[in-house]
C-alpha cells in the first residue's frame, strides 16, 4: 500500500490545486451551479460502490452496503448534472431589442 499511497497523495494534491485554480475563476453568479456540478462530479465515487455491489462472491452484508452506496451515488450522478443544467439554462443575456 505504501507505494500506491505516495502516488495517491500526489494525485490528490495536484487535483486539489488544479481544482482551486479552476474554481477560483468561476463567476460568483454561478456559485450555486458550481456546487451542484462539483457534487455531481464527486459522485464518481459510484465507481467504488459498484465494485463492492458487484462482487459476486461477497458477503450479503457487504453487497447490501455496496448496493445502497451505489443507489445513493447514482442520485447525485443523475440529479447533480440535471439540476446544474436546469439552473444554467435560466441564465440569459438581454434579449436582442
Amino acid at each position: 500500500m505504501g507505494e500506491s499511497l505516495t502516488s495517491n497523495v500526489f494525485v490528490f494534491l495536484l487535483a486539489a490545486f488544479l481544482g482551486y485554480e479552476v474554481v477560483r475563476r468561476v463567476s460568483p453568479q454561478l456559485h450555486t451551479p458550481l456546487m451542484a456540478l462539483t457534487n455531481a462530479i464527486s459522485a464518481i465515487s459510484v465507481v467504488g460502490a459498484l465494485t463492492i455491489a458487484g462482487a459476486g462472491d461477497g458477503h450479503t452484508l457487504l453487497i447490501t452496503l455496496g448496493v445502497i452506496a451505489t443507489a445513493c451515488a447514482m442520485v447525485n450522478v443523475v440529479g447533480g448534472f440535471m439540476i446544474t443544467d436546469r439552473m444554467l439554462k435560466m441564465f440569459k443575456k438581454r434579449k436582442g431589442k
Binding site: F12, A15, M35, I41, V47
Partner: peptide
C-alpha cells in the same frame, strides 16, 4: 474513498469538490 479502494479517479473527483467547497 479513492484512497481506500485505491482509485485515482475518485481521488481527483473528490479533490475537485473538496477544493471548490
Amino acid at each position: 474513498m479513492g484512497f481506500v479502494v485505491n482509485n485515482k479517479l475518485l481521488i481527483i473527483g473528490g479533490a475537485l469538490e473538496g477544493s471548490s467547497g
